[in-house]
Design a protein around this nucleic acid. Structure first.
Ligand SMILES: [Mn+2]
Ligand SMILES: [Mn+2]
Ligand SMILES: [Zn+2]
Ligand SMILES: [Zn+2]
Lengths: 148, 148
DNA sequence: GCTATTGTCGCAACTGGTCGCAACTGCAAT
DNA sequence: ATTGCAGTTGCGACCAGTTGCGACAATAGC
């Protein structure tokens, strides 16, 4: 089962500079956390980690920076089936979209890259004349070990 | 006061009866709203409409009933790309899954049924040995009239 | 119909995400 | 280096969703 290829250690901060977006102390801390994160951070985890780098970082700034990163297409927002409450999860956008699967029993999160998914998106673009910017496929169910 | 109990119960209420789930005045009101809704209600709209049928319905009961309906597989929960804040939208689960597309410019929501989507889910079940219970594909982008 | 059982409800307190505002700061022009 | 200012921040108030609890009401059994 194919896994998503990890992006080069590219810099979120570089994207900001290129697009003339102001780089503040707080944003630097938040971006650094997002860069180095093992995936799927939620907002409060992100806040806690960013505070370790710059203690002045406030909750609102985390949410505002997440919104900015989303608008810039640099991160994806996930529900992961809301297995643990309503919160959302964030991960750096990779070269290729991937599907997320969440096991409703053990809570494991799996990722899957598929050509059929690409085909499906192509179909939507053609049949609906819809120009896709972002797409998100999340599946809930039972993983191999839990479905026995 | 709630409507008379002799009123023709909808499918949701029938499902509750079959499964031995207690049918209360408040739930009857909420189910009735979900049955007759043109789609994609959010929680506060649902609360407002349900209160018109039974004024005693409380916010918590709406959320608890939504959770119950989700667990029973009777409704789907959608983000619709969080075009209007973080809230979630709900719709009755239909015979066949469909994709949701949201236009980032005009806000229009479109639905699309695709065999390729079914193929993709089949692939996930087979390749990942994952038993799918619920799936949700949401796409953000620009509709035909907005992408010119 | 009446009562006992137990699931559900409304309420109020709490948590997590948002927003308006005044203070601050990154950055670029001098 | 200094200055000027738009963009950004922390803060506090606010709003939406959750939870624990005592009161209540839907059902089953009499
Ligand atoms: Mn969501
Ligand atoms: Mn992922
Ligand atoms: Zn599992
Ligand atoms: Zn549009």
């Amino acid at each position: 089962m194919p896994l998503p290829q990890t992006e080069m250690p590219g810099r979120l901060q570089a994207h900001f500079a290129e697009r003339g977006i102001r780089i503040t102390q707080q944003r630097r801390a938040i971006l650094q956390v997002m860069e180095t994160a093992s995936k799927h951070l939620d907002a409060s985890q992100l806040l806690r980690k960013a505070k370790k780098i710059d203690a002045s970082v406030d909750r609102s700034t985390v949410y505002r920076t997440l919104r900015l990163l989303k608008r810039q297409g640099l991160i994806d927002e996930l529900d992961l089936m809301h297995l643990n409450g309503e919160k959302h999860y964030y991960e750096r956008k990779l070269n290729r979209d991937h599907i997320h699967m969440a096991c409703l029993r053990c809570g494991k999160i799996m990722e899957f890259v598929s050509d059929v998914f690409e085909t499906l998106k192509g179909e939507v673009e053609k049949d609906c004349r819809f120009h896709i910017v972002v797409s998100r496929l999340e599946i809930g169910g039972y993983c191999a070990s839990c479905s026995k």
